[in-house]
């Protein structure tokens, strides 16, 4: 009886405290998702003004369309390259710098530094490096890098964007993995050493399993970032050449997108992007959870 009364007595205060967050989150996160699901079944005229219901088949139509499938393929390949490569490089750097050496702080700061670059800064840096007429990298690589340029060739553009993205995310991965490494108890390494485990065996049998939760976290963040990448494509390639770097986000928001002023189709693609990301995070967590070790 008394506990029940206390529950109700706290309610007004709780509501007042939750209200500011709830107003923002409902208005700008949950409502837009619901509204996008609704908009996604509307067909609009080219000016984007008059929309009418087109039936829920529109989702199926969009899913089957060549544009969506191409953008999905682009996004998927982009993630398939940037996530494992970014993880491997980040872990490599973190292991390399995980030693008590004089001056190691300097190297750690350097390896973390790319975390300070926004997507616009990182992209324009690489745009400069890869610029076929003045870029240093273009000069060194030569061939297709000079003419027409790595970002302007259909076969290389996506991978050039991927390089820029991996570089930009390196600092984040390095910082988080370094923190993960430092939380591994030193005794584990000592007993493995006493048991005669070599450096590589210690890495695969102690470091990797103990890093499990950290790697899962970084993997999920990198995957979700890869699927939501927009600025790289907008600044480096503008979705081109020939749609070879039109990601799902670029298909929705890009200046050169074919569905640029069609709210209904844009919403439909955005909703499908949400569904893909949701499925991915569930898969990723389910699949890896069984194999990782949660230290207590």
């Amino acid at each position: 009886m008394t506990t029940n009364r206390r529950r109700w007595r706290d309610l007004p205060l709780a509501l007042a405290m939750l209200a500011p967050s709830l107003v923002v989150l409902v208005t700008f996160v949950l409502y837009p998702l619901g509204r996008a699901v609704w908009l996604g079944h509307q067909r609009c005229d080219p000016t984007g003004n008059r929309c009418s219901s087109n039936g829920w088949d529109q989702y199926v139509d969009v899913f089957r369309s060549r544009e969506f499938q191409q953008a999905f393929g682009v996004t998927f390949r982009f993630a398939l390259v940037t996530v494992p490569v970014g993880l491997a490089l980040g872990v490599g750097l973190a292991v390399l710098a995980d030693k008590q050496l004089r001056g190691i702080g300097f190297f750690r700061t350097v390896f973390s530094s790319t975390v300070a670059t926004s997507v616009a800064v990182a992209s324009l840096m690489w745009f400069f490096l890869l610029n076929p007429s003045v870029g240093v990298l273009a000069d060194w690589i030569g061939g297709v890098a000079k003419n027409p340029g790595l970002l302007r060739d259909e076969d290389t553009a996506l991978w050039a964007v991927a390089v820029s993205s991996v570089w930009a995310n390196l600092g984040f991965t390095f910082i988080v993995v370094t923190a993960g490494l430092q939380s591994i108890p030193a005794e584990l390494y000592e007993s493995a050493y006493v048991d005669g485990a070599s450096g590589w065996t210690r890495f695969t049998n102690v470091t990797v399993p103990m890093l499990g939760p950290t790697l899962l976290f970084v993997g999920v963040v990198l995957t979700s970032r890869a699927f939501q990448s927009y600025g790289e494509f907008d600044l480096l390639t503008g979705g081109g050449p020939n749609g070879s770097t039109t990601s799902l986000t670029y298909l929705v928001y890009g200046t050169n997108s074919v569905i640029k002023s069609n709210d209904g189709l844009q919403a439909a693609v955005a909703v499908l992007l949400f569904v893909v990301l949701l499925a991915l995070s569930i898969l990723q967590i389910r699949g890896v959870e069984r194999r990782i070790h949660y230290g207590d």
Binding site: L11, L30, V252
Partner: peptide, 30 residues
Amino acid sequence: LRFPGRTFAFGVFLATLLVPFEATVVVNRS
């Protein structure tokens, strides 16, 4: 605080973590 609907409110907060910002911009813009 303990109050009725706490679990539900918590669920609402949790759900927002699953929504990518990029999927909401179409509606947020309008």
